[in-house]
Amino acid sequence: MPGTVPGTAPGTILVIGATGTTGSRTTAQLVAAGRRVKAAGRTATPLPGAEPVRFDWYDPATHGDALTGADRVYLVPPVGDPDPAAVMLPFLERARAGGVRRAVLLSSSAIPAGGPAVGAVHRALPGLFDEWAVLRPSWFMQNFTGTHAHADSIRAHGTILTAAGTGRVGFVDADDIAAVAVRALTDDRAPDADLVLTGPEALGHDDIAAILTEVTGRRVVHHHLTYDALRERLAAAIPAEFAAMLAGMDRAIAEGAEDRTTDTVERLTGRPPHGFRAVAERELPLRRPAAHAAPDASR
């Protein structure tokens, strides 16, 4: 295999962002399937069954060790960078020259090829690799159960703040994204396609709040913000350009851009995608059943 280091077993998969929401799940599922995995992250965190390796998009000195022996790569873009192509494309050219033949990129249903941010990497990927896939998941269900700002707001205040209005989204489980990533990385034939991933139904944020209330027993409310209010709120914590892009995504949801479902998860994995209620019940503390009243001895 061109570029494979002598003495290194072929078929090693490099997972970039291996401690993240989809990267950790993809790593775990690959290991469970018996695949050799290099788990790349800024701190080379050990993960069961995988080889830890330090990797920083902004430090090319870490790229060589990460790529050594790998022939496939799962790509999670640098978080919060409005122009990830500036660091990703040089890395991908180096990966191709070093023997990587298949690349699977995590993008977003809201960003088409040639669009903003990772859209530029999406557009370039088919010209860099003969075997490729771009995963374009809808918004993650884990945004409400993990470490996302929505989840933090729910835990702290029982609120979800968006500019999405009553727009609906085909929210998708990160476990399902990982399952598709594993197939895209390991099937004999790569998808060589742009794959939009959703859950089984489109839900509004009011629906999400109602389900969370029912599952946890704690009242959760969706507060409707304007685009400007959300942009200003986000800009207090992240770069203004990125804040405007995220607020714009919420505005697009309000206009119906994410009101869809696809059969991609079932088509690639052979099973239906998980619904939001099932994920909430799996990942959140459940409502405690009411205690039965003690029998009245006078009766």
Rank of each mutant, 00 (worst) to 15 (best):
G165P: 01
V73P: 01
A44F: 02
A293K: 11
L284M: 11
G204P: 05
G11I: 01
T43S: 10
D259L: 03
E51V: 05
L284H: 02
V100H: 00
E281F: 05
P48W: 06
I111Y: 00
L128G: 06
H224W: 08
G114W: 06
A236S: 13
A32R: 03
E283L: 13
D173R: 03
G199V: 02
Y227M: 12
R299I: 15
G11W: 00
R42C: 04
E51C: 05
V121N: 03
V37W: 00
G115I: 12
E281T: 13
P10T: 08
L47S: 05
E214Y: 10
L128M: 14
A297E: 15
L268M: 09
E232A: 14
P116Q: 15
A117T: 14
T216N: 11
G165H: 01
E93N: 14
S108H: 10
E201Y: 02
P2Y: 08
V121P: 00
V265P: 00
A237Q: 15
L67V: 02
D263T: 11
D175F: 02
G80V: 01
S109C: 12
A240R: 15
L284N: 03
E93T: 14
G275S: 03
D59R: 10
T145V: 01
T45I: 09
A257T: 11
H150I: 09
A117Y: 09
V121F: 06
S108I: 09
P84I: 08
R102L: 05
L30F: 00
I177V: 15
T216Y: 08
A290H: 11
D206K: 08
Q142S: 03
I208W: 00
V182M: 07
R102M: 06
F276Y: 01
I154R: 03
A124Y: 02
A40D: 03
P285M: 05
H150P: 08
A163F: 02
P273S: 08
E131R: 09
H292R: 15
H63V: 07
R168T: 10
T19S: 10
D207K: 09
A190I: 11
D259M: 05
R231D: 10
R288W: 10
D59I: 04
A85Q: 12
G20D: 10
D130P: 08
D194L: 13
M1V: 11
V215Y: 05
E241W: 07
R102Q: 07
R251A: 14
E258L: 14
P6V: 07
L92K: 02
P2S: 12
G158K: 05
G146Q: 09
T12Y: 02
P191A: 12
M245H: 11
